[in-house]
Simulated scan of single mutants.
Amino acid sequence: MLKLGFAGIGMIAKKYIGLICQGQVPGVEVTALCSRSLENIQEAVRSCGLTNAAVFTDYSELLRSGAADAVVVCTPNGQHPPMTQAALEAGLHVLTEKPAGIWMDEVDRAVAALEQRPELVGGVMYNRRMSQAYRKVKSLIQEGFLGELVRATWLITTLYRPNAYYASGAWRGSWQGEGGGLLMTQVSHQLDLLQWLCGMPVSVLARCGTVNRPIEVENEAELLLTFANGAHGQFIASGHEQPGTDRLEICGTKGRIVVTDGREVEICRLAQEERAFTISCTQPFGEIPSTVERLSFDDGTNEIQQAAALANFAEAVAGRSPIMCSLQEGVRSLQMIQAAYLSHWNRSEMAIPADPKAFPAALEERGFGRSRSI
C-alpha cells in the first residue's frame, strides 16, 4: 500500500483525494495532508473520513515526518518545481500537478534532483495520456499507420471558464500566480498530447488574446506550428466560447486519424501512400481509395483518467509500470507554451525550445517576479 501525502488542499487535491477514498485508486492510502489552510485540511478530513491522516501546515515537516512514501503537489504553478525538488531530495516519490512549473531554471533543478536519484519516481499529472482514445492513436502512430506526418490540427474550445472560476482563487488569471493563462493551465493537457503523439514542433508563431474576462492572462490562443520534417500544425483554443468543440486531426502520407471529444476515433487508411500515388496517378483529379474505421471509448471523463493516472503513479513506484508522464517529458509542453508567449509578445516566429532566459526576462519586464515561498 502506497502511503500518499498531498501538498496543497484546494479544488484539484480534494478531487484526487475523493477518488482515492472512494476506492477508485487501488493500492493507495492518503496518510498525510499539508496546507497553510487548516480549514481546507479539516474539510478534507471530514468529507473523506481521513481521521488517521497526519496533518501539516509546514511542507518541510511533512517531508521529514515519514508519514508518506510519496507526495502529490497540488499548489499554484510557481510552487511546483521547488516542492518537487524538495520531495525528491527528502527521498520521496513525487507526482506534481501540471504544468511542471513557470521558471525553467527551477524546473531544471527539479529534473536534476530526480536524475540524481534514479530509484525515485517523478512525474507530471498529464492524466489525458491515460485516455484509451489517445493511447490508441499513440499505438497507431508507433506502428507506422500514418506514414510521415503532414499536418496536425487541434480545435479545442471546450474549456469554458466563467468569471466565478477566476474568483475561486486570488492567484488564478494572473501572471504572478499562474505564469500564464489558457495555454499554461487548461490546454497544457492538449499541448502535451500533441507533442506526445506527433513529436516536438521546432517553431511556433502565436497570437493570444483576453476576451470578456477580468484577468491579466489570455483566454484564447492560436498557434501555427512547424515540425522537424516540415509538417505544419494549427492549435486553436478558447476558454470563452459556448458551445465548444474538441477535434484533433492528424494527417499523414498513409492516412488520417480524427479524435472528437476525446472519445470518438475515426481511422482513415489510404490504399496507397500519397507520395507514391501522386507520381503514378494519370488523372488530373484522381483520388486515393480509402477505408474508414470508427471506434468509441467510454473513459473520456476527467475523473476516470485522473484515477487511472494516480493508479499508474502507484504502479510506477512499485516498479510494475513506467510513469505515464515523467518529469522530464512534462517539461516539453512548458517549452512549447513559453515559446508561444514569446512569439505573441515579439510578433515573430520563435524556435522551440526558446532561450530559457527569454521568458523570465519578458515576464520581469512586465512587472511580474517570482513567488519563492513554498
Score class of each variant (00 low, 15 high):
residue 225 L to H: 12
residue 29 E to Y: 05
residue 181 G to C: 09
residue 241 E to D: 10
residue 55 V to E: 06
residue 330 G to H: 14
residue 275 R to W: 10
residue 122 G to E: 15
residue 257 I to E: 05
residue 129 R to V: 15
residue 39 E to M: 02
residue 354 A to G: 05
residue 21 C to D: 05
residue 321 S to T: 08
residue 63 L to R: 14
residue 103 W to E: 02
residue 371 S to A: 12
residue 190 Q to L: 06
residue 287 E to G: 09
residue 201 P to H: 09
residue 10 G to L: 10
residue 119 E to M: 05
residue 92 L to C: 04
residue 109 R to A: 13
residue 328 Q to K: 08
residue 8 G to P: 03
residue 197 L to K: 07
residue 329 E to C: 11
residue 368 F to Q: 03
residue 155 L to F: 06
residue 290 S to T: 07
residue 177 G to V: 15
residue 312 N to E: 11
residue 143 E to H: 10
residue 310 L to A: 11
residue 345 W to G: 07
residue 102 I to R: 03
residue 223 L to A: 03
residue 357 K to F: 02
residue 258 V to C: 06
residue 270 L to K: 00
residue 34 C to W: 12
residue 105 D to N: 07
residue 55 V to S: 03
residue 248 L to M: 14
residue 160 Y to P: 04
residue 214 P to R: 03
residue 153 T to L: 03
residue 241 E to W: 15
residue 103 W to R: 04
residue 5 G to T: 00
residue 325 C to Y: 02
residue 135 R to Q: 15
residue 276 A to I: 15
residue 155 L to M: 08
residue 359 F to M: 01
residue 271 A to E: 10
residue 89 E to K: 11
residue 130 M to D: 01
residue 11 M to C: 08
residue 101 G to N: 11
residue 305 Q to W: 03
residue 191 L to C: 04
residue 154 W to L: 11
residue 62 L to S: 14
residue 189 H to D: 04
residue 165 Y to C: 07
residue 55 V to Y: 04
residue 359 F to K: 01
residue 55 V to M: 08
residue 229 N to R: 14
residue 324 M to R: 13
residue 154 W to N: 05
residue 342 L to C: 09
residue 35 S to G: 07
residue 286 G to K: 11
residue 237 A to S: 14
residue 251 C to N: 13
residue 217 V to A: 03
residue 142 Q to A: 15
residue 7 A to Q: 10
residue 36 R to E: 11
residue 299 D to C: 12
residue 46 R to F: 00
residue 10 G to F: 06
residue 30 V to T: 07
residue 315 E to C: 12
residue 31 T to E: 07
residue 258 V to G: 04
residue 326 S to K: 12
